[in-house]
């Protein structure tokens, strides 16, 4: 019997048979892991199985390649904090659905895990959350091998006046180095460099740039399915509450 114990954030729940549920948890050491929770739809357990919940999980299976079964202990629920907050709900939906979509199963992504837990813990703090979400997307891209390199101009090596990002390489490009290619490059909002006021317009522009790399680099590497709609809904909500 193979067994491990870990802590993680619940990403997805779906009913399995009459009484059980199959859950997906983003764990600290085992990455995205799936398993059956027996009695997962019962009155006692179902309230714990809300996306975003922080759980202590024990996974058991006879063979490594089996789906396996989880026993769970709740650490903290995040559902109550977000239910009355539209931005928080949209944020939680976006984070959990993107992670479910892009994370490979059973692969350690510890840095991304820690940023995800920090981000989920900030849910409900509307004034800082959009910026935290943007930074999380940058870590997500980095962790999955599509990180942006904004440290210096890809052409000149200089690190001043960086205002573009190459849509192909994800590297920064300076104003003077862009030349005739300027209209083919993506904008590099100051917020991506950790500069400026990080207002909503700047954050949305930056999310458009990170969205390009999610949609055109990360997602195609995973197959045909498009990025979940939840991200677009989150961006709409950020713009509305701006």
């Amino acid at each position: 019997m193979i067994e491990w114990r870990d802590e993680g954030a619940l990403l997805k729940v779906r009913k399995h048979g009459e009484n059980s549920a199959i859950i997906e948890v983003f764990t600290q050491s085992h990455g995205r892991a799936a398993g059956v929770v027996r009695g997962g739809t019962s009155r006692k357990i179902a309230p714990m199985l809300q996306p975003g919940a922080q759980l202590d999980v024990t996974w058991k299976a006879r063979l490594e390649e089996h789906l396996g079964a989880f026993t769970i202990e709740p650490i903290r629920s995040r559902a109550a904090q977000v239910m009355s907050d539209r931005l928080a709900l949209a944020g939680l939906n976006a984070v959990t659905s993107i992670l479910t979509h892009v994370l490979p199963e059973r692969e350690d992504h510890r840095a991304l895990y820690h940023r995800t837990v920090q981000l989920l813990d900030l849910l409900g703090q509307g004034e800082v959350w959009p910026l935290a979400y943007l930074q999380w997307e940058l870590v997500l891209l980095e962790d999955l091998g599509f990180g942006l390199d904004l440290s210096a101009c890809a052409v000149t090596g200089r690190n001043d006046d960086l205002i573009y990002v190459s849509p192909r390489t994800g590297r920064a490009v300076g104003r003077h180095a862009a030349g005739d290619w300027a209209d083919k490059l993506l904008p590099l909002p100051h917020v991506l460099l950790g500069q400026g006021s990080a207002d909503v317009a700047d954050i949305l522009a930056a999310l458009k740039t990170t969205g390009h790399f999610l949609n055109n680099h990360l997602v195609p590497s995973l197959g045909d399915r498009a990025l979940p709609e939840a991200r677009a809904r989150l961006l709409e909500r950020i713009a509305k509450e701006g």
Partner: peptide, 11 residues
């Protein structure tokens, strides 16, 4: 009661 219900009730 679970934490979530108590939080919702208090709010």
């Amino acid at each position: 009661l679970d934490d979530g219900t108590i939080t919702a009730a208090l709010n």
